[in-house]
């Protein structure tokens, strides 16, 4: 009896909570849904007033047009390559540097690391002008070197991984040293396998940043064939002539890969994002 009453009393409140959360969910997901629906519509359908909600036929004509004739297939591939390379290289060098700063002792170590910490506060947006000039001088303009090499080390990534290296017990290395392992072996075979969570956090952060970044690629890339998805979208916007249903198709191609990865790998990925949250 009391059990029943209790349940009944709780109900209206949880209905209210669900109503609020669902309203929020609709606001969060509506743009993606709207974009997805529009990617199947025709020009007439997207420009129609009053609004047509569902496309009349579910064909892939827009995707063929955007991926092929508008070269988004190439942009997609470019973005994938740049994101993959930047992430892999950055993870490697951040891990090496972080290992040096955390597990090895040498004169000047803490002073150099303090320098890193000081530079952690410098936002890269502030450095675009001198970095751009540097790319000009190195003759890296309009090549992927300009996208990848300046990002081969991340101070934040080094800082993040160092914190995790510090937390690992020292006995691990001592045992390995007695077995005659060298530093590279200790790094690769003993410590790195224990760093998967920290590495995942950095990978997620780097992938999301590089996949979506607009400012830097916009500055250093000119050729149409090197464009990334973000520049592809931005230049569609500038050209004025591109019809809306095709822009939405390009939007789906640019946003859905990461969205799907997060939707399916959600628990681990989202939690690792929370761990990497100390980014300033």
């Amino acid at each position: 009896m009391t059990e029943k009453l209790k349940r009944r009393r709780i109900r209206p409140r949880s209905v209210l909570i669900h109503a609020v959360l669902l309203l929020g969910t609709v606001t969060m997901l509506l743009p993606f849904l709207w974009m997805l629906l529009a990617s199947f519509k025709t020009y007439q359908e997207v420009m129609h007033i009053p609004i047509i909600w569902l496309p009349s036929s579910w064909n892939l004509d827009n995707y063929v047009e955007v991926l092929g004739n508008m070269h988004f297939g190439r942009y997609f591939f470019n973005t994938l390559v740049v994101t993959f390379l930047t992430t892999a290289i950055q993870l490697t060098f951040c891990a090496l540097t972080a290992y040096g700063f955390s597990r090895l002792r040498f004169p000047g170590r803490d002073a150099i690391f303090f320098g890193f910490i000081c530079l952690l506060m410098v936002p890269t947006q502030m450095l675009i002008v001198p970095r751009y000039i540097m790319m000009v001088k190195f003759h890296w303009l309009d090549s992927y070197a300009a996208l990848i090499i300046p990002h081969f080390i991340s101070i934040y990534g080094t800082f993040l991984l160092r914190q995790y290296f510090m937390a690992l017990p020292r006995d691990l290395e001592d045992a390995a040293k007695i077995d005659g392992c060298g530093y590279i072996q200790i790094f690769l075979q003993v410590l790195m396998p224990l760093m998967t969570n920290a590495c995942l956090a950095l990978v997620v952060y780097t992938v999301v940043f590089n996949w979506n970044d607009l400012l830097w690629p916009l500055l250093v890339l000119n050729s149409e064939k090197l464009r990334t998805l973000a520049i592809g979208i931005a230049s569609m916007r500038d050209e004025h002539t591109v019809a809306r249903h095709l822009m939405m198709t390009a939007g789906v191609i640019s946003t859905f890969p990461l969205i799907l990865v997060f939707a399916f790998g959600q628990k681990k990925l989202i939690e690792s994002m929370a761990l990497s949250g100390i980014k300033g």
């Binding site: 709207w34 939405m248 990461l258």
Partner: peptide, 21 residues
């Protein structure tokens, strides 16, 4: 997940969608 997805989506792309919406 639903609330988290906007965070990983490309700002350039979603600005276009909101512009239209």
């Amino acid at each position: 997940v639903a609330y988290f997805l906007p965070y990983v989506s490309m700002p350039a792309a979603i600005t276009i969608v909101w512009q239209w919406m």
